[in-house]
């Protein structure tokens, strides 16, 4: 049994706050857990808080991008919040600019982004 990252529900948003040094299997488990929880809870948004994350390599970067894509398919929007400046610089230099992933500087801003109807799901409803 590896440890799992908890997925919390606040209203119609799922909140994931990553507080551990991510081992690859934890990342894969999280992705599955999230997809299941979105469907089960009918959540409309997912916030992934990476404030405590010291590095994002291509594996974790890809997880953020695919999680955003999977959530979108399940009718939920994802916002990644709290990216450290050094992480952003490194990710871009690594070659991953996470084009399909919405970001906000803080949890508060991320939640506000999801709360604005129409803003995050253009032309869909």
């Amino acid at each position: 049994m590896t440890e799992r990252v908890p997925v919390l529900k606040i209203g119609d948003v799922l909140l994931v706050s990553i507080q551990v040094d991510l081992e690859d299997q934890i990342v894969l488990d999280l992705q599955e857990d999230l997809a299941g929880r979105i469907v089960e809870s009918g959540a409309r948004g997912v916030v992934i808080d990476i404030t405590a994350v010291e590095i994002v390599d291509s594996f974790v970067g890809r997880m953020l991008a695919t999680t955003a894509a999977i959530s979108r398919m399940l009718d939920a929007e994802t916002v990644v919040v709290g990216m450290r400046p050094a992480v952003a610089i490194t990710l871009v230099e690594l070659g991953l600019s996470l084009g399909g992933v919405r970001t906000a500087l803080s949890l508060e801003k991320g939640l506000a982004m999801l709360a604005r109807p129409g803003d995050h799901r253009p032309a869909q409803r």
Binding site: E54, I55, D57, R84, A86, T90, E93
Partner: peptide, 17 residues
Amino acid sequence: SLVDQTKLVTAASELAR
């Protein structure tokens, strides 16, 4: 520096994997 630490650790993570 913090940015260089982050770059090196990220590179090491890729290579270790």
